[in-house]
Design a protein around this nucleic acid. Sequence first.
DNA 1: ACAGTCACTCTCCTTTTGGTGTGTATAAAT
DNA 2: ATTTATACACACCAAAAGGAGAGTGACTGT
Lengths: 139, 139
Amino acid sequence: MDQGVRAPRLSASGREIPDEIDPALEELVRGIIGQVADKWTMLILEVLDEHGVMRFTEIGRQVGGISQKMLTQTLRQMERDGFVTRTVYPVIPPKVEYSLTELGLSLGAAFCGVWEWAAARHQDIEAARQKFEERQAGA
Amino acid sequence: MDQGVRAPRLSASGREIPDEIDPALEELVRGIIGQVADKWTMLILEVLDEHGVMRFTEIGRQVGGISQKMLTQTLRQMERDGFVTRTVYPVIPPKVEYSLTELGLSLGAAFCGVWEWAAARHQDIEAARQKFEERQAGA
DNA sequence: ACAGTCACTCTCCTTTTGGTGTGTATAAAT
DNA sequence: ATTTATACACACCAAAAGGAGAGTGACTGT
């Protein structure tokens, strides 16, 4: 058992692993990541990051292929979590503007790394899939 | 319309936005992110990153709360995408070892940023949720 | 008078996700 | 002789996710 190890461990990717990970924090962070690592959240985050302040239907157009239901739902969730601000203008027809908060921007920056990774490495993934299928066919 | 803008644009988070984003690549990267940004994938990635080479049930224990079905399924997907290597020892009872590939390690490193972001900012999210609910109650 | 606009909401309905429980092979341990 | 351990596969089922489409409310342009 290596429970008693005192020297700071390192993960294979070089990240430090604290010996004491508060399980409550762990659970909470997992929950947050679970929510944040959502398809529509990421895409909306991206278009808002690119375009700045936007209106409901415009976001829908830019994201593409999202239903009104999911757009509303995801925006609400993001507003609740403090990623976007929602500004309602009491005019008719209704006008609502969305934009990223500082927290939302920081999330965008954090996800930027993943996005770049995907763009840089997608060929490796494609190649791996090719090889995998070949191996399957051979076996 | 700002279709004709030639000066390189910048997103709010400082990332450069190429004017020409190959829609096929875009779609592909979205697909990859959609798969990769999966709860179990991330958690398995994490434990493998921390512990190095591991066996099936050990991964299950470390991840916690995952069914055998999902563990098998997710590991297969990760193997297919080239994130993990699967080594089968033809012994009885069966022994299968899993470990991250270089590609898997790089993905772990990319996600590290998001993980750290979540750990650093979870309080802000909590606070935002508090405020949101208060506003809802008041309205 | 009447269709159109915007940002939704609400009600179905289908698809996907994921858990559970069972089966399997075989050798070692009891 | 029976149980145990391992790494699954397979079938079944419940729950959740998510899409389609209709409705809404008030004003504005024709």
